[in-house]
């Protein structure tokens, strides 16, 4: 299973990054969101850390939708999905592979979003960085668990991106709230209760959706279509 997941992730990353226009669309959309939001502040007026963190996670959430939409579209052109179903490995390996590939792509996009948020929204990373990084990884993990499970939902549909956003965003509210609070802390907001409870929230979300992914992905990714 791990072998197949690795092969899947490697193949997906090759296809997205080395062929075609890669992450360009997701990156541009995210950066545009950050830029447009920066217009909301008057010259000389600061954007609060929480506002900046909200825009950062909004960009990341749109990026997640585009990334997973693309990852699952890869299997459609040559009906490769059927080929994957014939493999002797458990089909959850496909879910894991997509999640890993999505995680790498999302992190890569955030490497661009973060400096953009800092520069355009006038933030500095004055909060605790270790906790910030941990928060980033935990929230990304949750986004990828959801994306890899429900991205398979829209196979063969038109207007998938809008469908996926409509489904993903409300489901991810707890995770996004955690991301925003923890991100705000990294941008210098002090949380009275510390980051502990929000990190636990992100962890709980990850647990629930990783479990759901393992249990439910097989139902979604099947040959009957």
């Amino acid at each position: 299973m791990i072998r197949l997941a690795k092969a899947m992730a490697r193949k997906d990353l090759t296809l997205v990054l080395a062929r075609g226009n890669g992450l360009a669309q997701a990156l541009l959309l995210g950066l545009l969101l950050i830029f447009v939001f920066s217009l909301s502040r008057e010259a000389g007026q600061p954007v609060t850390p929480q506002e900046a963190a909200t825009v950062f996670w909004l960009s990341s959430a749109f990026c997640q939708v585009l990334v997973f939409n693309r990852l699952f579209a890869l299997e459609e052109t040559g009906e490769a999905r059927l080929g994957l179903l014939l493999l002797p490995a458990p089909i959850q390996a496909v879910w894991l592979g997509k999640a890993i590939a999505g995680f790498c792509l999302l992190l890569l996009a955030q490497v661009c979003f973060l400096p953009a948020a800092v520069a355009l929204l006038g933030q500095d990373l004055s909060g605790p960085l270790t906790e910030g990084a941990l928060a980033l990884l935990l929230v990304d993990l949750g986004l990828c668990a959801v994306g890899a499970l429900l991205g398979a939902l829209a196979t063969g549909q038109g207007a998938r991106e809008s469908l996926l956003s409509v489904l993903f965003f409300p489901l991810q509210v707890p995770l996004l709230l955690a991301g925003i609070k923890l991100g705000a802390q990294t941008f210098g907001l002090s949380l009275p209760d510390g980051p502990g409870s929000w990190l636990r929230m992100a962890l709980a979300f990850d647990g629930v959706f990783l479990g759901a992914g393992l249990l439910l992905f097989g139902f979604l990714y099947s040959g009957d279509a």
């Binding site: 072998r3 092969a7 193949k11 090759t14 296809l15 040559g78 490769a80």
Partner: peptide, 30 residues
């Protein structure tokens, strides 16, 4: 028992080269 299937669509990834396609299916099937 393992079965190999060749349908109307060939389970190919257009973005990968011929060799990369074979490599992927090799790795996927160990």
């Amino acid at each position: 028992r393992q079965c190999a299937f060749l349908g109307h669509a060939g389970f190919l990834y257009p973005g990968l080269t011929a060799l990369e396609n074979l490599r992927f299916w090799r790795d996927a099937q160990r």
